[in-house]
Amino acid sequence: MIAEFVPLLIASVFAIIIAVFALLMLISKKIHPTKKDQRKTFACGEEIEEKNLNIPAESLYNNMIKTLRLDVIRRWHSGNLASYIITIMLGMVLMIIYFIYVW
């Protein structure tokens, strides 16, 4: 009987924790409002502005993909229509051979 209410219980616990933390953050912002850091970032002789300091978004996974050689799969989707249809036909033929062997 209690098992019916367990998800609701866990969800309300999560919601209470989130509400408590949000309340704490709001109160602390009211008491001591934060100011932006006026110092510039120092990087070995030169100073970088804020907006150049982001993580590169597009090349975020490029190193991992190149080392694991996962971009081979992207090169298979070459945009060539003939290779797509040959893949469909090849998949169909292999499936039929597997079914004949097994059925």
Binding site: R74, H77, S78, G79, N80, L81, A82
Partner: peptide, 10 residues
């Protein structure tokens, strides 16, 4: 020519 239609790849 279908080989010239290559703007969609990947």
């Amino acid at each position: 020519n279908i080989k010239k239609l290559k703007s969609l790849r990947g």
